[in-house]
Computed example of a mutant assay.
Amino acid sequence: MQYLHKPIIGISCGDLNGIGMEVIIKTFSDNRILEQCTPIIFASNKLVNFYRKGATDNHFNYQVIKDFSKVNHKQINVFNCWEEEVTITPGQLNEVGGRYAVKSLQSAMQALQEGHIQGIVTAPIHKKNVQSESFNYTGHTPYLKAASGAEDVLMILYADNLRVALVTEHIPVKEIASTITKAMIVSKLRLLHQCLQRDFGIDKPKIAVLGLNPHAGDEGLVGNEEETIIKPAIKEAKQQDKLIYGPFSADAFFARHSYQQFDAVLAMYHDQGLIPFKTIAANEGVNFTAGLSFVRTSPDHGTAFDIAGKNIAEPSSFISAVFECVDIINRRNEFDERNRNPLRKITAEVLRNVEDEKIDDSIDR
């Protein structure tokens, strides 16, 4: 399918009773976003209207479609994933909210596989109420990996120039050490390096790797995973001509702002990376899944049932997720085009070498 001017982005609605639909409406109430992309919201007309009525000062106008050939590139499109009456109870964790969140996500995934959309921005789901025999996943990332047939994926959260990736995601803390392997770290570093080049336009990315134990193990005194797993993985990655450094003690690394010297940080587990990230990013973060054949972003917050339906949810992270989805699609297309065209690739390499020589000369002087 050919896209003439701007990407077509799918939006999954998330848990029906969370803040997903509210931040979606607030995001697309600014019609200027239509200059950057064509949005298709996978939900139902009735769900959209339920939350639209509660929004104030919005300019959210849309058309309902059941056929992708009817997409209007100058308007918000809502693809009806279901027609039946659904009870919406903002702020409540129940089976209905989760079941229809899955319907939305699966419908968007099908549209991706059929080539109707180029990327997807996912509103938050709750990991407990989406569970069923047909959806046994701990979140979006493992589902998208399985549905797309990806060999491996990597969760990256970023804001501005701070990028934090995770070796392990949503697993119990007691299982972290036994889960992490050298091969896993090497695979995540490979994905992170490729992503920084293709999706973020960084030719020679510098990556920092955090240790697993306090003080990065203190040379084996406080755990030996750094010596037996992490350092060997870094050594192997370096042999593949990658700029990889570490392992660093996580607390000092963030406290001393050492992350500012790197293009990305690879953390060993969820809270090790996400607590400092969310503290620094202050609600502006975006979640990106590397390793997929398509672009997927999401806000860095959850369903927020405590404020759902009160029209007070802050949409800034979701807005960032939409714009980042568009930007990554464009950067990825540019990267692929440059590598398909030998002349453009050679020219880019020559220019990079010239810049490297200038840097070397300035250091020598």
Rank of each mutant, 00 (worst) to 15 (best):
S132D: 15
V164P: 03
F294Y: 13
I275R: 05
Y259S: 12
H5E: 12
G115Y: 11
D57S: 15
K74A: 11
L189Y: 02
S12P: 10
D361T: 15
V167R: 01
V295W: 02
H270L: 05
D360C: 14
N31Q: 12
C13Q: 13
S69T: 09
T27F: 00
D327R: 10
E95Q: 15
Q75L: 12
L162V: 11
D327C: 01
R332P: 04
E219M: 02
A55D: 03
E35N: 15
E227K: 10
D218N: 11
G98C: 11
I275Q: 09
V350A: 07
L196Y: 04
G285Y: 03
T138Y: 01
E95V: 15
A264R: 04
R99F: 13
K345S: 10
H5L: 07
Q118A: 09
I319L: 03
I180A: 02
S293G: 14
I19M: 06
S317T: 02
I185C: 00
I328Q: 00
I346W: 10
Q131N: 12
V71R: 01
I117W: 03
G149T: 14
H5R: 11
F68R: 03
R190Y: 02
D241L: 03
L16T: 10
E85V: 09
I19K: 04
H140W: 10
K206W: 06
Q2L: 13
L274C: 07
C37P: 08
K46L: 07
N77T: 03
G139S: 07
R352P: 00
A237C: 00
T56L: 10
A233I: 01
A55Q: 09
I125V: 14
D306Y: 12
T168L: 04
E226R: 03
I9R: 02
D57I: 08
E284Q: 12
T303N: 06
V71Y: 01
I88H: 08
K6L: 13
V102C: 09
S187L: 00
F42V: 03
E35L: 13
N129P: 08
A313G: 07
Y62H: 03
A237L: 00
H257K: 12
E227A: 11
Q75S: 12
E324H: 08
E334Y: 09
E219H: 09
S148V: 13
G115E: 12
G149K: 15
L292F: 07
S104I: 03
Y269Q: 05
N287P: 04
N129Y: 13
A281Y: 07
C81H: 01
D336N: 14
S178K: 14
L157A: 07
S44N: 10
F248H: 02
K145T: 10
R296W: 11
M1I: 11
Y51Q: 03
T38K: 03
L243F: 06
K278S: 12
K310Y: 12
N72G: 07
K46E: 10
T87G: 11
A208L: 04
S12W: 04
V350K: 08
D218W: 05
